[in-house]
Design a protein around this nucleic acid. Sequence first.
DNA 1: CAAGTAAACTAACGCTTGTTAGTTTTTTTA
DNA 2: TAAAAAAACTAACAAGCGTTAGTTTACTTG
Lengths: 192, 192
Amino acid sequence: MKQETRKDEIIRTAAKLFKEKGYSAVTMRDLATEMGMKAASLYNHINSKQEILKEIIISLAEEFTSGLQEIQKSNKSNIDKLKDVIELHVNITSKNTYGMASLNNNWMHLKEKLEYYLQLRSNYEDEFRNVLQQGVKNNEIINGNIEVMLFSILSTLRSLYLWIPKKEDLNPEELSQKLSEVLINGINKKID
Amino acid sequence: MKQETRKDEIIRTAAKLFKEKGYSAVTMRDLATEMGMKAASLYNHINSKQEILKEIIISLAEEFTSGLQEIQKSNKSNIDKLKDVIELHVNITSKNTYGMASLNNNWMHLKEKLEYYLQLRSNYEDEFRNVLQQGVKNNEIINGNIEVMLFSILSTLRSLYLWIPKKEDLNPEELSQKLSEVLINGINKKID
DNA sequence: CAAGTAAACTAACGCTTGTTAGTTTTTTTA
DNA sequence: TAAAAAAACTAACAAGCGTTAGTTTACTTG
């Protein structure tokens, strides 16, 4: 575990402010105040406001990409892969709810890295869809509208950053498990 | 059907830009350009940038509130009430995906109306939770973690604004129905 | 403890922001 | 068609923006 540099601290603090007000509404003076310094001093550690956003978003996006690739390698059932993906989202989001807000809401303010981000995101959705499609093919998942399923599950997972901070009584393991139950089996009481 | 005033047109155009870049990143000059006029001219129709945001968000929030109250009045089963709520979200969002982006992501930039908005939102979640709780009590809904169910469903419904514009092949009725299926029954293939 | 480096500071830059004042043009009304 | 109203315009404002240059202070190291 490498210890946090001043740059890391700035990025972490920025992510927190970006979650509260969005990238554009947070000024370098806001960030400096929160760090207990003057705005110009930030530039001893970072090159630009844009760089901060890039660091927050791209590192998270790559973490999701490599996480999903790892899951795909296994030879588990597709339902179990789906459970692993849910766990992946819960784990990454639990560690960095602030950063996830930027990933979800501030990606459009990326400049040089925008295209790269969109590529990662698009690939991620394709891989995710693939799990569902294979699940249908193998009779693990109902033969319904794949896009509706994908959208529904992914929307929930992408919103975790808003909800995890409010429910600290649930640890990541419990949360993953309960979330898997609801997302996979629904809420309907079976008649049996 | 009252015809659209110039003010309405400005608000609608602003909502579109707010969705693309967020409230703070959209300037009055951006909005004016999109409207084919100069920034100062906007002020013949609106009082401030803040007023535009207020109009977008509060009208939608009140539409949700009154819609849910109407649903609560009926004596349908709670599962059927839930289906109606899903339909409510699909209908309101279909009519105004741009405005829904502001509702979801730019509410924190409200000033005078912030507290009012938060009250509406909080009440809405309480009413929604109530439907689920009654459903559990009446043996319609599984006796699981209510908060996880609430979060999962509401996250999906609140993300509809991102997804509806990309899937124009699905009309609101079909979408509501398929969404209800997935959110209520899950995606798991029943073994029978 | 001297030298070097890291990290803070002050001051300022050129540019953009939301908004106002005053004027001109266009459209509606009588 | 003249008067009134609506809706555009130009010009400018004070404040705030990200960032740079140059300097001072605080820590680290030989």
